[in-house]
Structure formats: structure tokens, C-alpha cells
Design a protein around this nucleic acid. Structure first.
Lengths: 224, 224
DNA sequence: GGCGGCAGTAGACACTGTCTAAACCTTCGC
DNA sequence: GCGAAGGTTTAGACAGTGTCTACTGCCGCC
């Protein structure tokens, strides 16, 4: 009863391990089969195509990310703190598990093409995560406005969904560009300002500074 | 005299055309050679490996993008308007030439690995573009502060380089996620607010709304 | 006890990127 | 003008890939 459909799970397990340790480029169909101890034709019984297997692996990545989101969002904390924690988790996950993160958004490797409109499509995995963020932003704004004098400025804030989309995109872009190497280069070239080399912040500090700045930018000033 | 090193250029030309029309997945070494009318071993005389050829193609993409930046940044316009124009150009380029944009940031296809520290590395192509933006942000802030009453709030703005990195990442993330399909899904699910379907904004409008909001968020309120 | 069907195997096929040896073609020295 | 030299390009081999198909075990079931 417990091994269920053994090989199917085992292939995905092997794929997850492989992409974590060796990167997305090593996820050959034959390589996965080899490491699972079966012949190269075996996966075909469970996954009609290579892309289908990769999609199943990527799906595990989204599930993992969702679990980390839930763990980071301590419901007793104020919404703003939760949003910050989630933001850090997102960037941290992308950089810690580069291969998996890359796979998750490589549309050319996933059979997301609209050939069958049914089935649990992969893109929709991000929807619940998105809605969690929208709820947090809404709550955050409500609490902020309650503590503030009413009838103040509040010059036409964008709707929460737009703010969340902007925030998400920003974190995603940071993760991509940082992994690609462009941001390090670019942040190291400019703002030295004559500081002694010894006290100059390291790359990890720069990244954290950037993430913090982005969070503040999208959620409004920390205010008081 | 004019054809110079004919085949080298021709291979890159063919690759650019191919990636524009068929996507990054169709950039096989043999396919490029085929379309250039030479045998599959010919490219090797000019590009030691497949990755080297792809890197040359991607380099053209960065040059193209830089030219569009320059064209969009009308020096007589205020810096803020220039920044907005550049931002729109970036997202527009990414969505209009998906294949090229994908290739440009596919580190696994480009031989950007630090095996030789010389040579024009691909990542550094983004540096002049970045510096252009830093200059514009600096000028924008200077003009804004000059028109404003001094000694005002201005609660600890991040340095220009950080603001530019944040803005760039945001545009990049929007382009990625929009191309991936997640943002459409997510922006269509939430903010209908009971508007009649006929007047509901189309996807292109939603994207433009998002880009505008992001620009405002990072550059500060349009103020007056 | 033979039988059906499922799980997995093994080989073929077309294709890929890399490498090597052979042919080609231009250009220079005599 | 001719022959040798050089850099270009070709064609084939090689290992590897994803897909497809025929085949083999093996299990439970009537």
C-alpha cells in the first residue's frame, strides 16, 4: 500500500535530487532512468514525453516553495513582516536551488502548451501563492490606514493585485539577474563612494540591501 | 573588402533571423549551418563551440537593445520621461523578440563561464546601459530637489545604483513572468471589481498599467 | 494450468554537437 | 605559368539524445 505506483514517484524523486545537485541541464531522460536503475524506455509508461516528466519535477518545486511560504508567514506577525519574510524566502529559494528554480520557469522544457485545457496546469501553481500575497497586502493597508489620520494624502495607490504583481516581478527579476551575474557586476561598479575596501559590503550584503529596498519601495515607507 | 570575414557574419545573421522567427530552441548548430548554406562542420572554423556562436548571436541582441535605449532616451526630454521611455522599450523588446531575449539571459547556452577572464564578456554588455540609467536617476533627483523646498522629508532614499538595480530587476521580472504566462493569469483573476466585461481592460492594457505603476513606484510620485 | 495484460527491456531511428582527415580553392614565390 | 602552401570547407565517424516499437518476463485470474 505504501509504495503505491513505485517507479513514477521514484523517477520524480531522482529528478528532484538530480536538478538540485547537478542543475537543469543534467535532467536527461536517459540519465534519470539510469539513476533510477531502470532502462531508458521505462519512464515512458508513466510519462508520455520527457517534458511531462520534467513538469512533474517542476511541480514538486512549486509545492516546496509554497510550503516554505506558509512556514515563513507566521500568522501572528503583522502582515508587513510576513510579506518581507516571504520575499526573502522567494529570493533565497531561487538562489539556493538554482537548478530547480530555473526548471520551474523554463517554459520550453515544460509541456505548458495549451494542447489540453484540462489537467493541473503548471502556471496555476502560482495562483494560490499570489492570492496569499494579495490578502497580506490588503490587510497591511487596512491596518496602516486605521492607525493613520483619515482623509490624508494616499494619492491613488494601485490596486493590491497590481502591487503584488509588481512586487513579485521585482523579486523574480532580482533572483534571475543575480543568478545571471549582472546585478553583482552592476552594484559593485557604482556605489563605492570612497569607502575603504575592508568595510565595503560583500555580495550577500548587497543582495540583502537590494531586497530590503525593494520591499520598502513596494510596501510604502516603514512609517511609524 | 566589403564582405570581410563573410561566413562569420553570415552565421550570426542567420542565427539572429532564426531566433527572431523560430525561437531559441531552433538554434541548433547544424540548423544554422544548413540555413547559411554550408556544411555542419563549417562554423567550427570561426566558433570553437556551439555556445560561442550562440554568444555572438546574443551579443547582437544586447547591441540592438542598447541602440533602442539610445533612440528612446531623447536627451531634450526630462530625465523622468526618458526613464519611462526606456522602461517601456525594455519590456517591449522582451515581449516582441521573445526568442532573442530568452537567449540573451540563458546562461546555460552562453559560454559566460569564467574560463578566460579576458575577452568581451557578455554580462558586461549590460554595464553601459546600467550606467545610462544611473545618470538619468541622478539627474532626475537633482532636478526634483532643486524645485522642491529643501530640508524636506526625503527619508533616506537608497543610492541611485540601488534604485536602478531595483527598477531594472522589476522590468526584467515583468517581462519574464508575462512571457511565462503567470502575470496574465494572476492579474485577470483578481481586480475585476464588477466592471462590465466589455469595458474590462485587455491584456495589453493590464501590462501597460503594471509597467506604469512600477515606474511610478521606483521613481517616486509624479508629484508636480 | 493456460491465459491476458501490465511493467519493463532492448534495439532501431533520426537527430544532435564535437572531432578528424581528406578535398578544395585561392594566393604567393619562383 | 606552375607548383607548392595555406587557410577553408566538406564529409564521415563517434557518442549521446528523445521517441517509437517489438519483444520478454511476470503476476493474478478465471
Amino acid at each position: 500500500m505504501e509504495p503505491e505506483n513505485s517507479l513514477r514517484e521514484r523517477l520524480v524523486d531522482v529528478g528532484v535530487d538530480l536538478v538540485m545537485s547537478e542543475g537543469a541541464a543534467s535532467l536527461g531522460l536517459r540519465e534519470i532512468a539510469r539513476r533510477a536503475g531502470v532502462s531508458h524506455g521505462a519512464p515512458r509508461r508513466y510519462f508520455p514525453t520527457h517534458h511531462a516528466l520534467l513538469s512533474a519535477i517542476a511541480h514538486r518545486g512549486f509545492a516546496d516553495l509554497g510550503a516554505r511560504f506558509a512556514a515563513a508567514a507566521d500568522a501572528t506577525a503583522p502582515p508587513r513582516a510576513q510579506l518581507q519574510a516571504i520575499g526573502r524566502v522567494y529570493v533565497g529559494y531561487a538562489l539556493e536551488h538554482r537548478g530547480m528554480f530555473e526548471l520551474m520557469f523554463r517554459h520550453d522544457l515544460l509541456d505548458s502548451e495549451r494542447h489540453g485545457s484540462d489537467r493541473p496546469r503548471l502556471r496555476e501553481s502560482t495562483l494560490p501563492l499570489f492570492e496569499l500575497l494579495v490578502g497580506l497586502v490588503t490587510r497591511h493597508r487596512a491596518e496602516r490606514d486605521a492607525a493613520h489620520r483619515p482623509g490624508q494624502d494616499a494619492a491613488a495607490e494601485p490596486p493590491p493585485a497590481v502591487t503584488v504583481a509588481a512586487l513579485w516581478s521585482n523579486l523574480h527579476g532580482i533572483a534571475q539577474l543575480w543568478a545571471w551575474g549582472s546585478l553583482q557586476l552592476v552594484l559593485d561598479s557604482a556605489p563605492s563612494d570612497g569607502a575603504p575596501v575592508a568595510t565595503r559590503p560583500g555580495p550577500a550584503d548587497r543582495l540583502d540591501q537590494l531586497v530590503t529596498a525593494v520591499l520598502d519601495t513596494h510596501l510604502g515607507p516603514v512609517h511609524a
